[in-house]
């Protein structure tokens, strides 16, 4: 197991390098630079700034410089937020994004598994159709459409929840962003669970469990849930990526200064180091989380384990 993990981590390094290289090229390929504005800089100053940030060097040299900084764990200074380094920005923003993302993921799993199981148990009934229809809307309606609707309803009209992240410091400010982020995933996981659960419920060992008089709840909880979860587990990898990207919209709407916010603004402002830093960070995160998912898969399915 340890050897497997180490091998996976080692194998991820070339992937990460490739990601960084591609991101680097793309970011520099976009027209415009971090210091462009309506108001043009005096040429002497512009030259000076470029020299200070090594932006006047040929691209390969800049790339190597970036990599050597990366190896030392230094992601560079931000070109726009000149008072902060990229490391500081990420260190500040990530825990926020993490909390919201993790909560959203947990909510998505719980609600999705629950709804999907319910639909599977009553499949082809009206309840099943209702759950599936709701989940379909959850998948089809984009975040930036229903998030403002939720805000209008719960914050403006009913005043139950804060409309923005910075307006309160308690639990209530997590609710809307977490739910918004989780909704499309709930829908997707519900559908996956339903299909998988229906399939599992047909299997022979479920018939055995029923013949043992375990009752539906026990049958589902003890016997059906673990195998039914396997496709959901496989989906976790892309789901995590989706939450990371979905967080961009949510952060804009609720004014949360998380990684998504800095990522988008960094791209728009051509803040190369911020964008690259977050790309590296996200890539490493996704690789790591996929590894965790694989290990979890083995935890559930013992036949995979004894390879």
């Amino acid at each position: 197991m340890l050897r497997y993990t180490l091998l996976r981590i080692l194998g991820a390094i070339p992937t990460l390098l490739l990601v960084i290289a591609i991101a680097f090229m793309m970011v520099h390929a976009a027209p415009g630079g971090p210091f462009d504005d309506d108001r043009a800089l005096p040429p002497a100053i512009e030259e000076n700034i470029k020299r200070y940030y090594h932006l006047d060097e040929p691209l390969p040299k800049q790339f190597l410089r970036y990599l050597s900084g990366l190896v030392r764990g230094d992601l560079g200074p931000s070109y726009v937020h000149v008072d902060y380094t990229v490391n500081e920005l990420i260190a500040d923003a990530f825990p926020r994004s993490l909390k919201i993302g993790a909560l959203a993921m947990a909510l998505a799993l719980l609600a999705g598994l629950g709804a999907g199981t319910l639909a599977a148990l009553r499949h082809d009934s009206w309840l099943d159709r209702v759950v599936m229809a709701i989940s379909m809307t959850g998948i089809s309606i984009p975040v930036f459409v229903f998030a403002p609707i939720l805000v209008l309803l719960f914050a403006v009209k009913l005043n139950w929840l804060p409309a923005g992240w910075t307006s309160s410091s308690g639990v209530s400010r997590y609710l809307l962003p977490v739910v918004t982020l989780a909704l499309p995933q709930i829908a997707y996981i519900a559908r996956l669970t339903r299909a998988s659960m229906i399939d599992v419920l047909q299997r022979d060992f479920i018939r055995t469990a029923r013949a043992q008089g375990l009752g539906t709840m026990n049958v589902v909880w003890l016997h059906a849930l673990k195998p039914a979860m396997l496709p959901v587990l496989s989906y976790m990898g892309p789901a995590i990526a989706a939450i990371l990207t979905g967080s961009i919209v949510v952060e804009q709407i609720f004014g949360i200064g998380g990684l998504g916010h800095f990522f988008v603004n960094g791209a728009l402002n051509r803040d190369y180091t911020v964008v690259l830093g977050i790309v590296v960070f996200y890539a490493a995160l996704i690789v790591f989380l996929n590894l965790v998912v694989d290990i979890l898969y083995g935890a559930i399915d013992p036949r995979v384990r004894y390879r």
Binding site: P148, V151, L152, A155, A163, S167, Q252, I253, G255
Partner: peptide
């Protein structure tokens, strides 16, 4: 950043 979000916060009294 979003104007509409800002207006909503205003309307919510924040």
């Amino acid at each position: 950043v979003q104007n509409t979000a800002e207006v909503n916060r205003y309307r919510a009294g924040e």
